[in-house]
């Protein structure tokens, strides 16, 4: 190596060899090792730098050889939704992004994700009453879920009914960096008079009060403020209205908060 550096003829030959790589460098098709060699060469050779400007300008024209095409209409909205979600995400994340697990979209979960993407910054999540036209929105919302792949650490857990409410099901949309989750439930019968559904986190087999479930008939989601990572499961039980310090009634919904359920 030392001989190489002090041998003028070999260095010239090496420079000529590297200079041959300049067009491929401009075209972006060199290996990382070749790229590094070219860049080292460019650092000491102004003539090559000038030549590279010419090649790079040619390359800047090459995209125009492609025919313009109309992208799918959904792409525009996907992009805007993802960018808006980015605004809400904390700045200064590392280069490796964490991606949304592929969701199993329900209308409610999709609606929440959209709301989160649009309004996360101030947590002024809009309340616009009941969802007036779910079917009309469903398709649009589902396509927008994909755009939320830019939202870091969003995890969706499914929650299933127990024999006490076999048709009930739901989803937990968890925003890890905000320690906030939204619980949506479908097909859960309205609680009897004087009773209410109560949500519990399960930690080491011990139930922890997570508050009352929003009345199922209201088409609303229940917002939970917690680091779900410290709990093993989530459950919903039927309790006296106003809640109970400990679960007393039947459990109607439960779900493990494990990676396999996400």
């Amino acid at each position: 190596m030392e001989d190489f550096e002090h041998d003028g003829q070999q260095s010239d030959a090496a420079d000529d060899d590297v200079a041959d790589l300049l067009p491929a460098y401009a075209l972006g098709v060199l290996s990382p090792a070749e790229r590094a060699r070219v860049e080292a060469h460019l650092a000491r050779d102004p003539t090559s730098r000038q030549e590279l400007v010419g090649f790079a300008t040619v390359v800047a024209h090459l995209p125009l050889l492609a025919e313009e095409r109309d992208p799918p209409a959904r792409l525009r909205q996907r992009l805007i939704t993802a960018a808006t979600a980015d605004l809400a995400a904390p700045a200064g994340r590392g280069g490796v992004r964490r991606w949304l697990r592929r969701p199993r979209p329900s209308v409610l979960a999709a609606s929440i994700l959209l709301l989160v993407s649009l309004g996360l910054a101030g947590w002024n999540v809009a309340l616009q009453g009941q969802l007036a036209d779910q079917q009309r929105l469903a398709g649009q919302l589902r396509t927008q879920i994909a755009a939320l792949q830019a939202q870091p650490r969003v995890t969706i857990y499914t929650i299933g009914g127990t024999p006490a409410a076999p048709n009930a099901r739901g989803e937990v949309v968890y925003l890890g960096e905000q320690h906030t989750a939204f619980l949506t439930v479908q097909n859960l019968p309205a609680p009897p008079a004087g009773r209410a559904y109560q949500v519990w986190y399960i930690q080491d087999g011990r139930p922890i009060d997570a508050g009352l479930l929003a009345a199922p008939g209201d088409q609303v989601a229940t917002r939970l403020q917690a680091d779900l990572g410290q709990y093993q499961a989530l459950a919903v039980s039927l309790e006296p209205s106003g809640g109970s310090p400990q679960p007393t009634g039947p459990i109607v919904l439960q779900a493990p908060l494990q990676p396999g359920n996400a």
Binding site: L127, Q128, G129, F182, V220, R223
Partner: peptide, 26 residues
């Protein structure tokens, strides 16, 4: 976002969030 009405969550109690239709911001 459009008109907003909120149900403030008391303390650590969970709040409830109505699901609003999507709307273009601009």
């Amino acid at each position: 976002m459009g008109p907003v009405r909120t149900h403030a969550a008391a303390g650590d109690r969970p709040g409830t969030v109505g699901v609003a239709p999507a709307r273009s911001q601009v």
